[in-house]
């Protein structure tokens, strides 16, 4: 894709009146401006209502003493937040969320960079290979989680244990190990499956970044005798820094929210419950602790806003550099 600046904020000032126009034109331009701004309203109002109102409701419920079992018993002050920070399950969910997000983002980022570097060169069948490498990202996440659980990690019929058996047979070895992956490495299995699905996403952003490299300078460095490794560490990586930050932050925002992998693969067992899973369980299971679940929801939103602020800053810097 060859594109001009993609900064959506740099508007074409086609509809505004030129400076020095007579007052009548200016007024008409302003009226025209309002008329044109009107189409924004339905979309904007809908987004505000649908995202801000539930959030306000969550804040409201987080301060109330409300369970599915006993109904709303009024104002609870900060009790629900205290519960969230004192409850060992909630604390463990916070730790798991951080572990899960860091592991998945870091591993898939490294793999994404490696694959992007491999694909960022001309060879026959490059288009096909690139399409195939995107494939994991296209599978419905819940289907992918189920497939990993039932068709890959399964003790008897799973692909991983099957491959181990096959390798042992090839080399004439007896008694191949057949571990129960989900029980022995619960968090590891979730991380593995998530990395598999998210690596293509990282790869896509990395490829976009690689294409923006100043090739003339790199060629000059090659002429001056720099080797591949030097070019990679001294030139490619610094250029890619922004893209790496961006991919990492966008990935983190989505993986912090991930619910289906934890829900499907381990059902939160063995300390693998992350915050979204904890919230869902607190809300829907047992006595339905609406207040506590909402307080945990507020915590997640605040956490996401913190990450998102960094992401936003990166996005805006990238945009500025591009334009």
């Amino acid at each position: 894709m060859t594109t001009a600046s993609l900064d959506p904020t740099g508007a074409v000032e086609a509809s505004t009146a030129p400076p020095g126009a007579d007052p009548e034109t200016k007024r008409r331009a302003r009226r025209e401006g309002w008329k044109r701004r009107l189409p924004l309203m339905p979309a904007f109002v809908f987004v505000i209502i649908m995202t801000q109102l539930p959030f306000l409701a969550t804040i409201f419920i987080s301060f109330s003493n409300w369970t599915a079992f006993s109904g709303n018993k009024g104002f609870a002050g900060l009790d629900n937040f205290k519960t969230v920070f004192q409850d060992s399950d909630a604390r463990s969910a916070v730790v798991t969320t951080i572990e899960l997000t860091l592991l998945v983002v870091l591993i898939s980022l490294v793999l994404g960079i490696v694959i992007a570097l491999l694909l960022d060169r001309t060879f026959r069948g490059r288009g096909i290979v690139r399409t195939m490498m995107i494939a994991p990202f296209l599978i419905v996440p819940e289907a992918a989680a189920l497939v990993w659980k039932h068709a890959l990690f399964n003790v008897q019929s799973g692909l991983i244990n099957g491959s181990i058996t096959q390798f042992y047979n090839w080399f004439g070895l007896k008694n191949p190990p057949q571990p129960d992956w989900i029980t022995s490495h619960p968090l590891g299995t979730i991380v593995t499956a998530l990395v598999w699905q998210w690596t293509p996403f990282m790869m896509l952003i990395m490829l976009a970044g690689l294409q923006g490299r100043p090739m003339d300078i790199i060629e000059a460095a090659q002429v001056d005798g720099a080797n591949t490794w030097q070019i990679f560490t001294k030139m490619t990586l610094p250029h890619m820094r922004r893209y790496i930050e961006l991919a990492g932050l966008l990935g983190a925002i989505y993986i912090v929210q991930n619910f289906e992998y934890v829900y499907t693969i381990t059902s939160g067992g063995q300390n693998t419950a992350n915050l979204p899973y904890y919230i869902q369980q607190t809300f829907f299971a047992g006595t339905g602790e609406y207040g506590v679940a909402s307080a945990a929801g507020v915590v997640v939103v605040i956490g996401t806003i913190v990450i998102a602020t960094f992401a936003l800053r990166t996005v805006l810097t990238v945009l500025k550099e591009e334009s």
Partner: peptide, 27 residues
């Protein structure tokens, strides 16, 4: 259009798309 608050609208749109869905489900 070039109007005040345009950037704010775009940034709101971006922030909102990062909004954790689980926090919307419960209310």
């Amino acid at each position: 259009l070039d109007f005040p608050g345009k950037k704010a609208i775009l940034i709101t749109a971006l922030t909102v798309s990062f909004f954790p869905v689980i926090a919307m489900v419960t209310p």
